[in-house]
Design a binder for these strands. Structure first.
Lengths: 167, 167
DNA sequence: TGGGAAATGATGGGGGTCAATGGGATTTGA
DNA sequence: TCAAATCCCATTGACCCCCATCATTTCCCA
């Protein structure tokens, strides 16, 4: 259950695009066979996630004061503008025209893994940005402090696999 | 059981509007085949929810001091002014004139998902407000602290689906 | 280790199905 | 008895199922 790598697929003339096999595999035990997409806040890209991740967002919003302005804004921006997209028999989704336009996608789509979530880009827009962020990271000498293994959920550690993690 | 996305449907000359298939699906095993609507207290919109959510509101009101002004007001605003609207054979409801007027709805209705609940808007009114929400969210740099997976209800996590989730 | 066969994932497109809509007919209730 | 609500059926257009083809990768065996 982890989205990694960049996969470029074709958008056909019916507005369909194949979800990468690797991503579909990461979503295997979901109750909903498909993905959720919504417009990114900061980038000219689409945010993608699973049904259970969307449940998590809804549950977290539930905890904020039911009448707070911030919860309202987030609900409108994320839940209200998200698209629930089921696979067809071949593992493709139909990319809604609104999202194609927002992300300025033409005939190709880049699926970019970000761990628990992923993004969809016009590859021509993503590539220079990726190089820029790579340079920034190097210059900054950024390091990532890793969580101790023992704090990870069971199944994410070697030797703790259970039957659901057969992949 | 999650309301997501924005769905724009037509209000016909008989005052009927189709409830989006996705929303009806989210309400599948409810005992009442229909939805509840009441006037939003802060927006020019209608709040919508399921029968079981209405039960939840009633239960929460029970916990407030029975004779407090606040409980009185909430009971009047929500329970007193709510409309229980059954589907017709095609999954449509009849929007009461009172609610059409309150939400300034004309010939189109936007169903906007908010997780456990949803809202109904005049699309022309909702659209600019949603844009504003997006901008505020961006400026605020709002991030949502996600609940840990383990606290989610069973069925909202991968690998815990039960037979009722066969969809 | 090279080459061919088989399996699998990605792509293209036709056509049937169903959700959304419109409107007439029938029933219900005041 | 009239008006409003409900039932019923027709239409249409978008979506989804199905199959065919193509491109890779994997596998197998000489």
């Amino acid at each position: 259950m982890l989205f990694t790598g960049t996969h470029i697929h074709k958008l056909d003339r019916k507005g369909r695009v194949s979800v990468p096999k690797r991503f579909r595999a990461a979503l295997d035990n979901e109750e909903f066979a498909g993905i959720y997409l919504y417009q990114s806040h900061k980038e000219s890209a689409l945010e993608g996630c699973s049904h259970s991740h969307m449940e998590r967002i809804a549950a977290s919003l539930d905890e904020l004061d039911m009448f707070s302005d911030e919860a309202d804004d987030l609900a409108d921006t994320i839940l209200g503008s998200s698209h629930m997209l089921p696979y067809d028999g071949e593992g493709r989704i139909i990319l809604p025209a609104e999202l194609i336009e927002f992300a300025r996608i033409e005939d190709q789509v880049a699926f970019v893994g970000r761990g628990r979530t992923f993004r969809l880009w016009n590859p021509d827009i993503f590539k220079p940005l990726q190089e820029a962020s790579r340079t920034r990271t190097l210059n900054r000498g950024a390091t990532l402090k890793l969580k101790p293994m023992t704090e990870l959920p069971k199944g994410a550690r070697p030797g703790t696999a259970n039957e659901e993690d057969a992949s």
